[in-house]
Design a protein around this nucleic acid. Structure first.
Lengths: 288, 288
DNA sequence: ATCGTGAATTCCGATATCCTGAATTTATCT
DNA sequence: AGATAAATTCAGGATATCGGAATTCACGAT
């Protein structure tokens, strides 16, 4: 059985508290600048603040930003402020296309939104999290754990996220659970026993209902998107008002979701999320 | 009048054949790797091919890719292939509000899509290209020059793209035309005379109709989004089936589009797409 | 199933690049 | 306008980078 560390390595590309964060390589430092820009004020950041946030000298930050600008990843708005530039977003749009899932799922999302008149989410697994890859708004205002596109939640929190976790291979599921329990408790989630019973139920019935919803007045349904080996690679979910998921409508919603999930799975023949990271990372993480 | 080179410098962040492509800085070279990954197969590229495309040795490419992966911008899929990682997408999505324009335009796109039941595009100018910044699908399947979000077309090709070009300042327009003519011809587009007359008409009437559509059965309308100085910073366009843009409906569509474009322009007071690039770039490009 | 080819990764010395500090220019605030 | 603070440029010393060679690894063929 895989260890937590192995699972972690398989998905080490998380911006988590890896504690190796300060480490070297000028490239790494430059890339951190991009992250600083992304997380900073949309109108741009001052060079001084960027340098401080990056922990490097002002001339160094300046030179790197000039390079980033020359390549179209950053730009200088009025007032000398630096911010991300268009090319960055353009490239990022392609990054989401990995395996074409987003593209493949978009028609389904639109159909679901049109049919159900609710907000639809497309989630994918990424390490120990579920990431919102796409989302189509419905007419009702929704609060959800999974915020907007790009939002992350620990696997297990929220219907779609739980649907994914419930359909991972046994050993990975176990590792994720152990890793995520503290994170879930931090967010006021149920205890481990409740999680395990919810997972068992989710796996058995093939979908996750509103019972795990922790936001008052909100409810949702999530179904997994399975690959050829029956492993969850994504989830479709609906978020809506609790009153809109009564006993009458629920079966209908589940059925439609499952139909789309199955059709989507059919389009994903060569979908392979298994990553292998070099053993060098082991020492990096293990040694810190 | 500005020279082509000057215009080019203002928007030098193009992945074109700048001939400065080989130039210095390890950061720039690393960022080019990201571009290579973005343009390559979504399922990933082999290290050898990446190294070749980047014009550097295999070990060098390897080390840079490891750094990119460690920062979450790239990842290794099964089979050792490298591709852009999800974090890249997530980062941009979170910062997405940064662009302002996209955020500001989204309600308009949704309204247009709902009202017209067609696919709506938001294009912005970037150098010699128009870039699709956002897009809302309609119920009809559409083929367009401007592919999905992030797609580029030479300015002048397509309704929205032409609408932007038609409303650039005289000298820039001229420079773009000269630069783009060969590119347009390559793609089976009309000759220079036709382009110029189309531009004149577009500028005069304030919108671009389907007459420039080169895809059989498809049609569209584009209107420019003008800044305070009357320069085009973006375009809204509709793409649909030719039969859905008959003489009855066309004026209606144009009117609605123009209304949204005008409202959008009003929200863009502090929107400043003019970029200033350091004079250092001048010598870089001029000297090669 | 084993072998052979080609790719991916690691190692290491030379060297080009990057970083820190100081000086200059430019912007911002009172 | 003057003063202050930031942004940018400049130069020398230190270091991380680069590419060739060797090794390990993955994959296709016999």
């Amino acid at each position: 059985m895989k260890s937590i560390r192995q699972i972690f390595l398989q998905h080490s590309a998380l911006q988590m508290t890896t504690a190796d964060s300060d480490s070297s390589s000028s490239l790494r430092r430059a890339l951190k600048l991009l992250r600083i820009l992304a997380e900073g004020d949309p109108d741009g950041l001052r060079l001084k603040d960027i340098a401080e946030a990056a922990g490097c000298s002002q001339p160094t930050a300046h030179r790197m930003l000039q390079d980033l600008a020359a390549e179209g990843f950053a730009e200088q708005a009025a007032g000398k402020r630096y911010r991300l530039a268009l090319d960055f977003y353009v490239l990022a749009a392609r990054a989401g296309q990995a395996s074409g899932l987003r593209e493949a799922a978009r028609p389904a999302l639109l159909r679901l939104s049109a049919t159900l008149s609710d907000t639809i989410f497309l989630l994918v697994r990424n390490g120990f999290d579920a990431v919102c890859l796409d989302r189509v708004e419905g007419p009702f205002p929704i609060r959800s754990f999974t915020g907007d596109i790009g939002g992350r939640v620990p696997l297990g929190l929220g219907q779609g996220s739980l649907a994914i976790l419930a359909n991972l291979p046994e050993d990975e599921q176990e590792a994720v659970i152990r890793f995520n329990i503290p994170r879930l408790l931090d967010r006021g989630f149920l205890d481990e026993a409740s999680l395990r019973s919810a997972l068992a139920q989710a796996r058995a019935q093939g979908w996750v209902n509103t019972s795990t919803g922790l936001i008052p007045g909100m409810a949702g349904v999530g179904v997994p998107v399975l690959d050829a080996q029956g492993r969850a690679v994504a989830a479709l979910s609906v978020g809506t008002l609790a009153e809109r998921l009564n006993a009458d409508r629920l079966p209908h919603v589940v059925k439609i979701l499952q139909g789309e999930a199955k059709a989507l799975a059919g389009k994903l023949n060569p979908f392979d999320v298994a990553l292998r990271y070099p053993s060098r990372s082991l020492s990096t993480i293990g040694g810190s």
